[in-house]
Amino acid sequence: MASGNPRVERRGLLLVLSSPSGAGKTSLSRKLLDADPNIALSVSVTTRKPRPGEIDGQDYWFVDEAKFEAMIAEKALLEWATVFGNYYGTPRAPIEKAVAEGRDVLFDIDWQGTQQLSERMAGDLVRVFVLPPSAEALEARLRQRAQDPEEVVARRMAEASSEISHWAEYDYVIVNDDLAESSSSLHAILAAERLRRDRMTGLSAFVRGLQAALS
């Protein structure tokens, strides 16, 4: 049975985290995955080159442009976008299977991908936007990663305002000043969304059984 209520079957949900690069969505994702065994990370397909330490099939599926474009043509992606000159996308089949089986999936994607997911699986979607506490904090976090050259840091800072402009398209907003506090807020959002009545596909049968037992 799905998590949330062990007695009632439910449909899974798609928990989306979006933010400008450096605001902390990846750190929040990792903390949630470490703490909650009932949610799994969606592994995206990308044409971006692997960063140090990234593993194919675990962090991303790394493919070339020809393969990615074939997946688009075959409608094998739930969403896809071009970000900083690279393709990113979500394979359709494993996500639809997980949700139907009552399993939750976590997405670390941008606003473009979120809009496409909203068009295809709106009833299953929970959208959370993560904001940095200040522009200075955002720049400091980007530099602390020490993975991107100076021109990439400058470009990400320039793009941040545009990305942040989409905050109102999300169901929840977390200002990530303190990681522990933000993580607690994210857990609360997930717990509440798991208990939504319209996600509990077995609730009617459970209530009828309960009523019959009480009669």
Rank of each mutant, 00 (worst) to 15 (best):
D59N: 15
Y60C: 09
W61S: 02
F62H: 13
V63P: 15
E65Y: 12
K67C: 08
K67R: 09
E69F: 08
E69G: 00
E69Q: 02
M71V: 04
E74L: 04
K75H: 11
L78W: 00
L78N: 08
L78P: 04
W80Y: 15
W80T: 01
W80Q: 07
A81W: 08
A81G: 11
T82G: 10
T82N: 05
V83R: 02
N86C: 02
N86M: 06
Y88W: 02
Y88R: 05
Y88M: 10
R92G: 01
R92I: 00
K97R: 11
A98D: 13
A98K: 03
G102I: 10
R103T: 12
R103D: 05
R103I: 11
D104W: 04
D104S: 06
D104P: 14
V105T: 04
L106T: 03
I109R: 06
W111Y: 13
Q112S: 13
Q112L: 14
Q116K: 09
Q116N: 09
L117H: 06
L117D: 06
E119N: 10
A122Q: 06
D124F: 03
L125K: 00
L125E: 06
V126F: 08
V126E: 14
R127D: 00
V128C: 08
F129V: 08
V130I: 13
L131Y: 07
E136N: 12
E136L: 11
E136S: 08
E136Y: 03
A137K: 11
A146R: 15
Q147G: 06
E150C: 15
E151M: 10
A154Y: 03
R155F: 09
R155Y: 11
R155E: 12
R156S: 08
M157D: 11
M157G: 02
A158G: 03
S162P: 05
E163H: 07
E163Q: 02
S165V: 07
A168C: 12
E169M: 14
D171C: 13
D171S: 12
I174M: 06
